[in-house]
Computed example of a mutant assay.
Amino acid sequence: MIQLSNTNFDFEYLYLDNSCPTLFGSKKDCFDMHTLSYRVFGGIWKLIDGKRIILGYWFADNESELQYAIRSAGFTELINSDNGEINEVYHSIRIEQDQQNWSNRSKLPILSILKKPWKDLRKGWYVLKSGTNFPCILTCIQKNRYSVWIEHIQVCENKNDAVKFINLINTEHNIHLNYDVYAESNIKN
């Protein structure tokens, strides 16, 4: 199965500077936060004026699926890059995804407050874990008197990531959540 990415195109750069080569790299065993599994990662980028412009990235189950996805996206003339650059591309994408997950707040529909599990809970802060094992998704929720807000989301590969997420929440909102307390409990519908 191929996981296509949200490809970031900067058309101004693409059409103004076709003299810059399009670079490609791939790496096995990269964490795919969309499937919560480790897969082959591939990225395409250009170096323009010393700045890396990422044109797209993909996750696939194997190298041949990755190559197929890249060709299907219209990239044919590529120069293989070294592993150091693909590592930097992968990490810059993960950092950007983590920053978006941290900063995007959303309010649950107004009637959510009247439905389980929210109607039976006191107002306060809650961290929900998507499963019992790692990797998983943690969601920080604040319940107020008349609303429920998703404050932050974090994809965690291990317990250390989860503890860091809880500590960030504590610092950001001046509260005192404890990882061990939330890890043992789970909100049921």
Rank of each mutant, 00 (worst) to 15 (best):
Trp45Ala: 03
Trp45His: 05
Lys46Asp: 04
Leu47Thr: 15
Ile48Cys: 05
Gly50His: 11
Gly50Cys: 09
Gly50Arg: 09
Gly50Phe: 15
Lys51Gly: 03
Leu55Thr: 02
Phe59Gln: 02
Ala60Lys: 02
Asn62Cys: 13
Ser64Ala: 10
Ser64Asp: 12
Ser64Gly: 00
Glu65Tyr: 04
Leu66Val: 05
Leu66Met: 10
Leu66Pro: 02
Gln67Asn: 08
Ala69Asp: 02
Ile70Met: 09
Ile70Leu: 08
Arg71Asp: 06
Arg71His: 12
Arg71Phe: 12
Ser72Ala: 15
Thr76Glu: 06
Thr76Gly: 04
Thr76Tyr: 14
Glu77Asn: 12
Glu77Gly: 07
Ile79Met: 11
Ile79Glu: 14
Ser81Trp: 02
Asp82Glu: 12
Asp82Cys: 08
Glu85Trp: 01
Glu85Pro: 00
Asn87Leu: 08
Asn87Cys: 09
Asn87His: 03
Glu88Gln: 14
Val89Ser: 02
Tyr90Phe: 12
Tyr90Lys: 09
Tyr90Leu: 10
His91Trp: 05
His91Ser: 09
Ser92Ala: 15
Ser92Glu: 06
Ile93Leu: 12
Arg94Cys: 04
Arg94Asp: 02
Ile95Thr: 12
Ile95Phe: 08
Gln97Lys: 08
Gln97Cys: 02
Asn101Met: 14
Trp102Pro: 00
Asn104Ile: 14
Ser106Ile: 08
Leu108Arg: 12
Pro109Val: 14
Pro109Gly: 09
Leu111Tyr: 11
Ile113Glu: 07
Ile113Ala: 03
Leu114Asp: 12
Leu114Gln: 09
Leu114Pro: 01
Lys115Thr: 11
Lys116Pro: 00
Lys119Asn: 11
Arg122Pro: 03
Lys123Val: 04
Gly124Cys: 06
Tyr126Ile: 14
Tyr126Asn: 09
Val127Pro: 03
Lys129Leu: 07
Lys129Cys: 07
Asn133His: 14
Asn133Glu: 11
Pro135Trp: 10
Cys136Tyr: 01
Cys136Pro: 00
Cys136Asn: 03
Thr139Asn: 08
Thr139Phe: 04
Thr139Leu: 07
Thr139Lys: 13
Cys140Ala: 15
Cys140Lys: 00
Cys140Leu: 13
Ile141Glu: 05
Gln142Asp: 03
Ser147Lys: 11
Trp149Asp: 04
Gln154Met: 05
Gln154Ala: 15
Val155Tyr: 02
Glu157Leu: 09
Asn158Gly: 07
Asn158Lys: 13
Asn160His: 12
Asp161Leu: 06
